[in-house]
Nucleic acid binder design. Structure first.
Lengths: 235, 235
DNA sequence: CGCTACATTGACAGCGTTCAAGGTAAGTGG
DNA sequence: CCACTTACCTTGAACGCTGTCAATGTAGCG
């Protein structure tokens, strides 16, 4: 039973998160969950705000409650690479380095839980399940990066877009083949997939013309031919 | 003082490894080092052999003693992506997933230390430094993957090659600007950099013609203009 | 209405892939 | 020692995808 104060309009963390990456609470007892909730602060930010910047001290681990964020990395010469999009349930800032090696920008209004990393990691020393779960979260993040690496190394523009769509379908809460809301701009997609915005636009047009996808609105996608889209995305 | 048996032609692990990634022993006492060495088996394999295959159970963590290996991933449609090259001191098989999501092939005769992962991780529960060091190793692996991701997303062919050269210069033991031995084939480079073998060949010719690099032998590279090569590789 | 930000489309050039031919080096067997 | 094989690498030519530059279209907002 929880003893800490929770504003009544907020559901306990382990009930409000639906994504499969919501793993910190996995296998934990209620008492353990309460201690984990005890070190979490809830914060909000608006579309366009940065949760943290590249090279800032990596003080916190975050867990997305609502909204979508983009992880991005900018190099000396100004080129930007988006390393991933994160959704409710996803974790960010899970690193052992003293500074973040990337920035996190919110694409929508976003609510997150913020864990002080030192406190989280020392709590993990007491709660074996938590330690396992942190490792599990890291492992999943790593697997996704490997997928993206493969896509960037081996796939053509329209295949990369299909990969993104399948990822959204699998990970974005509420996404269905007939309705996937794209919270990111074309530029964000381009920077994620290693393309230009024009190529993204043209590839979308091609996929549309071929009857694989459709747009009900500018940013609402429909996957018309899921088997073919899956096949093109296949890693 | 070491009490376990070490064949006399083999130097203790923590003395034989020079790479900066040799981090498992960092900050450990001699007693701690001995217990870590106690769970290590030494094995060898020939060029072309696989240390482990994609989807095999992830039973072991390896540490390269001598030689060079390539981490690779093959997809359903047969396209191959090389995820990295590893050198003496580097670790591989560091994952929390029950199966390896990639294969590891040796490019040369290779000696490795093999740690049973369960034993390594339970030993880490007793030795705080070891746990920290494992996390540190994971973190470095992750950072390198992010670098590669950026390269694949944003760089042109000749820039990607410069990136590889700088990586080799920094990480391959014995590499100097005027002599870098390339243990991998052109095809391996291509699969690492997301290019075709022909593009690799042509880009090498271009870099040579521009006076940035030279070849003393087919597989022995010389970086002639290090500042320019570094600049092109810049992440 | 006009402003702004974002997205699409067109024309064209260039980079990288593809297909094909030729070259190089090491190893094998007569 | 030399022809032959094999694996790897280089080079050429043509094609096509993607990037670049520029213009146009669209949606939201004051």
């Amino acid at each position: 039973m929880s003893t800490i104060y929770i504003p009544k309009h907020i559901r306990p963390m382990h009930e409000s998160l639906t994504n499969s990456d919501c793993a910190l609470f996995h296998d934990m007892t209620n008492v353990e969950r309460d201690s984990l909730e005890g070190i979490a602060d809830q914060t909000k930010c608006n579309a366009g705000d940065y949760l943290f910047r590249q090279n800032a001290p990596s003080d916190n681990v975050y867990n997305v409650i609502t909204g979508t964020v983009a992880i991005e990395r900018v190099s000396n010469n100004g080129r930007r690479q988006v390393l991933g999009f994160l959704f409710p349930g996803d974790y960010l800032g899970v690193t052992n380095a003293p500074h973040y090696d990337c920035a996190v920008r919110s694409l929508t209004k976003t609510e997150v839980y913020k864990f002080n990393r030192k406190r989280l990691y020392s709590l993990a020393d007491e709660l074996p399940h938590l330690k396992t779960n942190i490792a599990e979260v890291s492992s999943r993040i790593f697997c996704r990066i490997l997928d993206q690496l493969y896509i960037l190394g081996q796939k053509k523009a329209h295949e990369r877009l299909c990969f993104l769509f399948i990822q959204l379908l699998e990970r974005l809460p509420g996404a269905r083949p007939d309705r996937i809301e794209l919270y990111m701009t074309r530029q964000d997609m381009a920077d994620y997939l290693g393309l230009t915005i024009e190529t993204v636009s043209r590839s979308l047009a091609k996929l549309k013309a071929d009857g694989l996808i459709a747009f009900t609105q500018l940013n609402v996608l429909q996957i018309v031919d899921l088997p073919k889209v899956s096949e093109m995305a296949d890693i």
